[in-house]
Amino acid sequence: MTTTDTAVAPPTQPRVARAGVVGKFLRSTTGPIGAGVMGILLLVALGADLIAPYDPLARAGAALQQPGGEFWFGTDELGRDIFSRVVHGTRLSLQTAVGAAAFAGVVGLPLGVLAGYVGGATDAILMRITDFVLAVPGILFALVVVAVLGSGVWNLTLAIGIGATPTFIRLARASTLSLREQEYVLAARSMGASPFDIMARTITPNIMGPIIVQIIVTASVAILVAAALSFVGLGTPPPAPSWGGMLQSSRAYLFQQVWYAVLPGVVLAVTIAALDAIGRGMQVALGTRTAGRAKVGGMG
């Protein structure tokens, strides 16, 4: 883990204040911009087949043409339309981001709540496992998992998801610890709620704020790591139109078609910036500052 350790759980908002969170998010500087850009990118990913003017995998014209009316981003070394490939690459990237973040959240949240609520040996064992995974830089962890499982879209998603899970465990655990002795949890316990009920129905809904922020952060890191691994040829294998893979092939043609190296990178950076902006807007709205980019895989 890098920038922030054990992302300190904020005192969770009482349920009543929840309505104000959306308003605060929309009034934050970065939130609405990020959400707007992400909305567009989601539409692009969902409607890729309708939006892309050409088949992303087939030859559409002469190789290495400059951007123009016919090919908005130009063509690559095989004469494929770069714009169409970037559009389909959006789908690929967001798919990895959603998959990895969902995996980490679905596995990490319950384990973290369990560790925080039950404590004892369960907690100790889980914490040592997270210590180990967090001691390996995110990109390296993904690289080793890919070395064992082989490359491919789903292995890549899984590799990034596993690497991101410990941060969720830590975050959920810290939040749970801060809630465990709260009056409403004690009240639920004194009314005879089972430990499972308390964990699932009383604690989990109240720690979702920081978890959702962390999901956004994880999505952005996942896109960056996936692009980095595809860039070095260990992520999504060609001819799939991954952004990282496109940037890799573009290196050989920097002088013939410089936009080939520039435009996919711009779209990649804008996507990550949009997710970061949403994350920051949410932190403002929830009044937390610490969820952070824990486990920075983005450096590559």
Binding site: S220, G265, G298
Partner: peptide, 22 residues
Amino acid sequence: QAAALAIPTFWVGILLIIGLAV
């Protein structure tokens, strides 16, 4: 700050190589 975190280092690397090395 937002750009520094969002722009992948390997892409900065390509751009630097184009601009300053090649």
